[in-house]
Nucleic acid binder design. Structure first.
Length: 727
RNA sequence: GCGCUCUUAGCUCAGUUGGUUAGAGCGUACGCUUCACACGCGUAAGGUCAUAGGUUCGAAUCCUAUAGAGCGCACCA
């Protein structure tokens, strides 16, 4: 019976077998738990990994953290649900398939056609989903696979179109010509949050513009500039009146310019005078909007100059800039040049410099008032009128979403303060298509195509974060009124990386608030990034990747989980340390040997039950009290999401208290002739082991389960569904 | 510019609401075939808790300033 304990603990022999046994038992699905109906719900949705991706340490960390919480709550008697899913990662996935196709055939997606491309991308995504899913399983994640969701499956498609239509009908989604971040390489718009600012050394030019001197870092945009903007309080230019016109010589000949007075001008910067290019600058666009000015396009969607540039038309920006400056020199219009350092906007995905463009796009209006007919959010009453911005703010400010980390709260509110309308249309083919159809001047927005001929659907798809924002409730069956939705939403807890606080977390709050009058989750604990041992991000180009599966092969999933969780305070970045993982592999083996010792002695003493009140001597009672105190602390740590502390304490207890002290002091007792003392001691040890296994199970599910299966005292088929000790 | 986080043993990090001699893993030195475990046991070395002030009976923990590291947001044409 104890034969398996004669060899060191072997994770690779154990883990797959146990995971299969758990999965087969059906216990990942909370509906199958004993007395399921009476249990209070506890739900978490897994941040869906990219369906075509592979597991990295960031996933491994999140899986460890959430699985620990879910396992704890399940053992505590909650109806614990953890919903798995994957994300289409539309832009990346389409780009990959397109690239492969064009490499083979030398043709573009347009040769393939929309329908065929989408079919192939979908097929590619579905074919590779097994990889990531089996990898998540290897972490020991106790996800309810019967509720698996994919961002582009039929149910989620319905949720997305329904959400769009309802927001459109409420006037919160509109289509308009507005300035957007255009990625000339990706040939699509991107949101503000997908921009990365990079420092650039460049030249700042001062040009003679009629009687003024204007400064610019972008001479190539200046062809169409015909407005001179001055601060109304600037004494240097007070003789110039708003709306006044003047003739002057410019790059390609004489032009008529108009004076505009606007308070957005910084008098101290440059000469205090600027000309504007509304088509290619956010700030300029806003000035032009305020004063109703003309807007002209200078640069096309591929980053080339348009005919307005005259002799420079058709040139790329980088080539044109020096030539334009040269011409201005010849015309005597260059006043001076100085070196200049500034940040330029680049696209996160393509690293291409963003060229703002005015485009006809779909937007979510975050400043428009609407009536929230039903609200369960604390501090927001049903029927109140507010904007989406106010909704997002109030949900956190008034405690609907508990965001205890002060730093992240501040960042969140600050972000909301700066929030602009959210551009949600993207010019790619793979994704949720905008549910709007056009026929001439008519437009129809609905969950299904309108009847009649000649309707054409909008070619754009939605920002992937639009569908992700619905994730907490689209995975539970919304827009249908499902039992799951009633029971499990709002979800209990979410722990995303700070990277996606704005991209995802805030948008979930927006969507759950608008569509359900609920928050998406009651508590949010934001965690840091897993980095390499030098503190760098893991990246392909650095080649510093650590494969979690390799770690599991080497040390076991339990060791990896502990290595990632112990001593990593939530919110700070984590430097991955392989030696730590190794240490916890040794710990798994230590537990194994503690079990062997305890079980051997229990067997010898004939102890096979956990007496409710074993006959204990005072020394034994003290050991019980120590463990009771620890149990209380660990329970408390779990409930307050101080998981890293709970894990540390249990490690310390098992090794340095149970093994080093209690087992050692038990040896002479167990070797003595005092049968009563022996039995009592064996009884105590069995009890302590049983309790330790329960407490450690959320962190090290495999080794604790494997030992539990040999316990003479087990009171459930699996430790996974055994009860957490009461305190 | 505004804001956030971090600075604790050689390395990677804990230290929850301020409370007895500051902890863990790995590493280092020495000694152990002790019958649960060498994936082990024992012993030891190693920290002015970035710096300077302050609050307090008491501070790694709270406040202020400084230095260094990192990050976020906003950007000035």
């Amino acid at each position: 019976m104890l034969e398996k304990f004669l060899k060191p603990y072997n994770p690779s022999e154990t883990e797959q077998r146990l995971y299969d046994a758990w999965e087969t038992s059906g216990s990942f699905n909370p509906d199958n738990l004993p007395e399921s109906e009476g249990r209070p719900p506890f739900s978490v949705v897994l941040p869906p990994p990219n369906v075509t991706g592979v597991l990295h340490l960031g996933h491994a960390y999140e899986d460890s953290l959430q699985d620990a919480v879910i396992r704890f709550q399940r053992m505590r008697g909650k109806r614990a649900l953890w919903v798995p899913g994957t994300d289409s990662a539309a832009i990346a996935t389409q780009a990959r398939v397109e690239k492969e196709y064009s490499k083979r055939r030398g043709e573009s997606r347009h040769d393939l056609g929309r329908e065929e491309l989408v079919r192939r991308v979908y097929e590619f995504a579905k074919n590779s989903e097994d990889t990531i899913l089996s990898q998540v399983r290897r972490m020991g994640a106790s996800l309810d696979w019967s509720r698996y969701a994919y961002t582009l499956d039929e149910k989620r498609e319905k949720a997305v179109t329904t959400a769009f239509v309802r927001m459109y009908e409420a006037g919160l989604i509109y289509r308009g010509h507005r300035i957007v971040n255009w990625d000339p390489k990706g040939q699509t718009t991107i949101s503000d949050d997908e921009i990365v600012y990079q420092e650039e050394q460049t030249t700042f030019y001062y040009f003679k513009y009629g009687p003024f001197t204007i400064g610019t870092a972008r001479p190539e945009t200046k062809f169409g500039d015909k407005y001179v903007v001055i601060h109304p309080d600037d004494a240097r230019y007070k003789e110039w009146k708003h709306g006044q016109q003047l003739e002057l010589e410019w790059i390609n000949g004489p032009i008529t310019a108009t004076i505009i007075k606007d308070e957005s001008i910084d008098m101290a910067f440059g000469s205090g005078v600027m000309t504007i290019t509304p088509w290619h600058s956010m700030v300029d666009f806003e000035i032009a909007e305020r004063h109703g000015l003309d807007k002209e396009q200078i640069i096309d969607e591929y980053g080339k100059l348009l005919p307005i540039a005259g002799e420079f038309a058709g040139m790329k920006i980088a080539d044109a800039r020096p030539k334009i400056v040269e011409k201005l020199h010849q015309k005597g219009l260059v006043v001076k040049e100085e070196p200049y350092t500034h940040n330029i906007a680049t696209a996160e995905r393509t690293s291409c410099i963003i060229e703002p463009q005015i485009k006809l796009q779909w937007f979510v209006d975050v400043n428009r008032h609407f009536s929230l007919s039903h609200s369960e959010i604390p501090g927001i009453e049903s029927g109140s009128t507010l904007t989406l911005k106010e909704l997002m703010r109030a949900a956190v400010e008034r405690g609907g979403v508990d965001m205890p980390q002060e730093g992240f709260r501040k960042a969140y509110f600050h972000w909301i303060g700066n929030l602009h309308d959210w551009c949600i249309s993207r010019q790619i083919w793979f994704g949720h298509r905008v549910p709007v159809w056009y026929r001439g001047e008519e437009a129809f927005c609905g969950t299904e195509a309108p009847r009649g001929n000649d309707w054409e659907q909008d070619p754009d798809v939605l920002d992937t974060w639009f569908s992700s924002a619905l994730w907490t409730f689209s995975t539970l069956g919304w827009p249908e009124k499902t039992d799951d939705l009633a029971k499990f939403h709002p979800t209990s807890f979410m722990s995303p990386a700070y990277e996606i606080l704005f991209l995802w977390v805030s948008r979930m709050i927006l969507m759950a608030g608008f569509h359900l009058g609920q928050v998406p989750f009651k508590t949010i604990m934001i965690h840091g990034l897993v980095r390499d041992s030098k503190g760098r991000k893991f990246s392909k180009s650095l080649g510093n990747g650590v494969d979690p599966l390799e770690m599991i092969d080497k040390y076991g999933a339990d060791a990896l989980r502990m290595g990632l969780l112990v001593g990593t305070a939530l919110g700070n970045d984590i430097r991955f340390d392989e030696s730590k993982v190794k240490g916890y592999k040794h710990f798994a083996n230590k537990l194994w040997n503690i079990a062997r010792f305890v079980l051997e002695n229990a067997e010898k003493a004939g102890v096979t039950t956990l007496e409710p009140n074993p006959a204990l001597v005072p020394a034994d009672l003290a050991h019980l009290q120590t463990l009771n105190a620890l149990t209380k602390e660990v329970t408390d740590d779990f409930e307050n999401y101080r998981i890293y502390l709970a894990a540390d304490k249990l490690y310390h207890y098992a090794w340095h208290e149970l093994a080093d002290k209690i087992l050692e002091e038990s040896k002479p007792i167990l070797a003595s002739d005092d049968e009563t003392a022996k039995t009592s001691r064996a009884q105590l040890l069995l009890f302590l082991l049983d309790r330790t296994l329960r407490l450690l199970h959320p962190f090290m599910p495999f080794v604790t389960e494997e030992i539990w299966q040999s316990m003479p005292t087990k009171d459930a088929d699996f430790l996974m569904v055994a009860r957490w000790p009461d305190v």
